[in-house]
Design a protein around this nucleic acid. Structure first.
Lengths: 303, 303
DNA sequence: TTGTATGCGTTATCAA
DNA sequence: TTGATAACGCATACAA
């Protein structure tokens, strides 16, 4: 069936006829045993419906394709047992990358030899990891908003009650250095609808608000929508900024100022880490397989 | 290593130590040969950066997950030789689904036994296929726009020069039945920026235009942006409609009227076809493995 | 508690 | 031009 030289046409046809008859398909496993094919990368994300993840996934798939790696994409939103997903996927792929977390205790002997690269995690991870450093960009945003004359900044954060996200805390601290107090409103869900409601809550808590920084671009789009619905001018009356740098931010009017993450850099860094660990050039954990990618302030129309 | 009963702790530890030492990982192929794991579905799309595909991919991955199938996602935008991609991927997966085309001549004996499901293809495909029937929904859109008093409709189509898309032709024909002539403008690229430019072209070609139907939601968002930039009221002065029913259409202001495709239905239909073909319940081609999913008009604010 | 043999499906080599 | 056979890495049943 593999078109080897020296097979008579008659025989070949006879073989193919039998194959069709039996619905025969060569086994990936049998074949892979003899001649190894392309390795496979497992990419774990939350939900492609959240506009953040397609941009990440596209960048990762593109980078993986450069090395001829295949990518199995898994959405945790469909999965109940996330730890089991990691186990299953680690058995079926050659390296695992994305948004997931592994407790050091859960890191059994079996998993200890699998190349893992966790995204956007705090440095002390028992695996490879790529940290996202927003600090300078957030400081730039603070400077930018202050220069624009913001007096009453607000933060629309997505966290559990009484917690503040790291990025949000950076914003609060930065504004405090400029003598501005940030009014913090918290919502639990990251969605546009939540942004609409959250935006309303921000204004009813503090009507003189003249600047809103949202947890991310999706929420910021909700804020923009709410302001448009209520006839509040952006950026004249209230300035709005997001976080992530999604393409989505250029679709809305006014276009969204945002703290952009360089998805290509993240993907390149993470894939290179995973492939390096797979190839044995890097250990499975430790400082050698930790990288940092920095954010960048992108000023558009909404501020 | 598989935690079989009756292994002494000392031996087990000795084995794991050696495994760590050698960076040993069990071979997927060797293991798969003995005990078959989960099958894998290959999903071929153009580009996750185009908001249409994440919604499709998410639905397909979700449906596949219900049957515990894994999904390998491939973006053709990164690939030069699309036919080679199909061959490679068909070797490494158990069924192939998505946006691709197979010439009947290219359908060699080897490929003839692979379950293929092509999306949005004209019925006569040599594989499984899911057709998208927009006709009734497009007729509904025509009625809707006429009822709203449209006199000078325009179509912003994405096609090669001098061709008209099937959906666009349906719109033109429908309007003609109501005595309206549709001014057709063609652009070659489906993107928001192209929509901005195309929208301008529409208005300069026919300034009295009072309704624009775009090839899809992304282009329609570009039209909306252009109208907003130029201070033209939507829907009061010009009504705008899109096609696809993307979530994106709810992010923009005004929210976009659109011809919605039921992604969940498409995904369920396509995955069920692919799995049926894989299981042998369905042939690899012919009317038994052809399905149709219908569109639906969703009226929002832009009309 | 540990070692050994078998078979999974494929490719490649070698003898016929 | 064709048939037979080893080897790939693993899980398992069985012998020691």
């Amino acid at each position: 069936m593999n078109h080897m030289p020296g097979i008579s046409v008659r025989t070949k046809e006879r073989v193919f006829a039998a194959a069709r008859e039996l619905r025969y398909r060569p086994s990936t496993f049998g074949r892979g045993l003899v001649k190894p094919g392309q390795p496979t990368l497992g990419l774990i994300i939350d939900d492609l419906t959240n506009p953040y993840y397609p941009e990440l996934a596209s960048a990762v798939i593109g980078q993986a394709a450069r090395y001829r790696w295949n990518v199995v994409l898994a959405e945790t939103v469909h999965i109940q047992d996330k730890h089991q997903l990691i186990i299953d996927l680690s058995r079926q792929t050659d390296a695992l990358l994305g948004y997931f977390s592994i407790d050091p205790e859960q890191l059994t002997d079996e998993l200890a030899v699998t190349p893992f690269v966790q995204l956007d995690t705090a440095p002390p991870a028992p695996t490879g990891s790529v940290a996202l450093d927003f600090r300078a960009a957030m400081d730039d945003l603070v400077e930018h908003l202050v220069a624009r004359g913001i007096q009453h900044p607000a933060l629309l954060d997505v966290t559990k009650p009484d917690a503040t996200s790291a990025r949000g805390q950076r914003f609060v601290d930065g504004m405090r250095r400029h003598g501005r107090h940030v009014a913090v409103t918290r919502i639990e869900e990251s969605s546009m609808d939540a942004g609409v409601k959250g935006g309303r809550a921000v204004l009813s808590a503090c009507p003189e608000t003249d600047g809103i920084v949202a947890f991310n671009d999706v929420v910021a789009c909700g804020v923009l929508k709410m302001l448009q619905l209520d006839g509040i001018a952006v950026p004249d009356r209230i300035r709005v900024a997001g976080y992530d740098g999604l393409t989505l931010g250029t679709f809305v009017t006014p276009q969204l100022t945002t703290i952009e993450i360089n998805m290509r850099a993240v993907a390149e860094t993470a894939v290179d880490l995973a492939l390096g660990m797979y190839a044995g050039d890097l250990p499975m954990s430790g400082p050698e397989c930790h990288r940092t990618v920095t954010h960048r302030l992108v000023v558009r129309e909404s501020t």
